[in-house]
């Protein structure tokens, strides 16, 4: 049993050789053996869990994407294996290019604004002032609210006729904007809400990064006559680079996944103007009366590839930071 539980993770057995190898005496080896038994006994639940609730669903998803599933064969089995036909169908779909573009725009624009605003706020909060701890805590609220709460609140605020945003625009003499119901504005509207949700995470992580920059560096810069702006660009920004890289990459992974926010606010519409790969995948599989599980899973595979690529870059960047 020990053997079988090790198989999925047997990749880097060599990696730990250094700490596990001892003098080649039988007793030491036996003790080591029993310690490995204990170590893997503790790991058994998580290994079984990963196999049953991560590997198996992912396998089923892959299976979905490679077969020609209909509602009937979905229930009773026996769907025909069709190789990459679902993927080809999805890539050739006229909805593909816009969905990919929207995913990229949604992700990059969200990231840029979340990061810039989060960094500005982190710098603002870096010097403590009266109430600063409480206000910083309050900034976390949008991040902790259930997404459906944020999404429905923004939906109502951006409502064309009765939304508070258009009411405010009217006060300053700007004509109402059809935020969620016109193709020109829908993507921007969901980006706006997503930036609002993402600011707290960026603020907290960057704030912690700022705290780890030694105060003496700023004192030295001040003695050298650097003003606040120069201190930011010459001291803060370079020293914050590793933390910034990791914040951005984690943000990238999270933003690629965003589905509920867009689905609740616009359902990807109107006429697909805010459809991303995630909402497209959901609509194919669950959003129509006649579900297309195969193509839906194929879109999901594309999304996985993008997320894992970002994830690998993240892990490499984090390793580099730990090594410093």
């Amino acid at each position: 049993m020990n053997q079988t539980t090790q198989t999925p993770t047997g990749l880097s057995v060599r990696g730990l050789g250094g700490s596990a190898s001892g003098p080649p005496r039988a007793r030491a080896r036996r003790r080591l053996h029993s310690e490995q038994w204990a170590a893997w006994a503790f790991l058994t639940p998580v290994t079984v869990y990963l196999l049953a609730f991560f590997a198996y669903p992912l396998y089923r998803n892959l299976d979905l994407s490679l077969r020609d599933y209909t509602v009937r064969s979905f229930v009773s089995g026996g769907a025909e294996f069709i190789g990459l036909a679902n993927h080809r169908k999805v890539l050739g779909d006229p909805a593909f290019a816009p969905a990919l573009t929207h995913t990229v725009v949604f992700t990059l624009v969200s990231l840029a604004f979340q990061f810039a605003i989060g960094l500005a706020l982190a710098v603002f909060f870096a010097k403590s002032f009266r109430l600063s701890a409480i206000l910083r805590a309050l900034f976390l609220v949008p991040w902790l609210l259930p997404l459906i709460v944020s999404a429905s609140t923004w939906s109502w605020m951006l409502n064309s006729d009765s939304g508070v945003v258009n009411a405010a625009l009217r006060l300053v003499g700007i004509a109402p904007v059809h935020w969620l119901t016109s193709p020109q504005w829908s993507l921007l509207s969901v980006i706006l809400a997503n930036v609002w949700i993402g600011i707290p995470f960026n603020l907290v992580v960057l704030y912690n990064g700022l705290q780890s920059i030694p105060a003496q560096l700023y004192e030295a810069a001040q003695i050298d006559g650097a003003n606040g702006w120069q201190q930011f660009w010459r001291v803060t920004f370079p020293l914050l680079r590793p933390v910034s890289a990791i914040t951005l990459l984690l943000g990238l992974v999270y933003t690629l996944k965003v589905f509920d926010l867009i689905w609740i606010m616009t359902r990807g519409g109107p006429s697909d103007s805010s459809t991303t790969l995630a909402t497209w995948s959901y609509r194919l599989s669950f959003g129509n009366l006649l579900p297309e599980f195969g193509p839906g899973a194929a879109v999901g595979n594309l999304l996985i590839v993008m997320a894992l690529a970002a994830g690998l870059i993240y892990i490499r960047a984090q390793k580099r930071q730990y090594q410093r």
């Binding site: 090790q6 993770t9 310690e35 170590a39 290994t47």
Partner: peptide, 20 residues
């Protein structure tokens, strides 16, 4: 407890977080 393959398992867990 220094399990053999522990690093690989940690890596799998990190990647698992990325799956949409």
């Amino acid at each position: 407890l220094n399990p053999r393959g522990g690093r690989a398992l940690s890596f799998v867990l990190l990647m698992a977080q990325m799956i949409p």
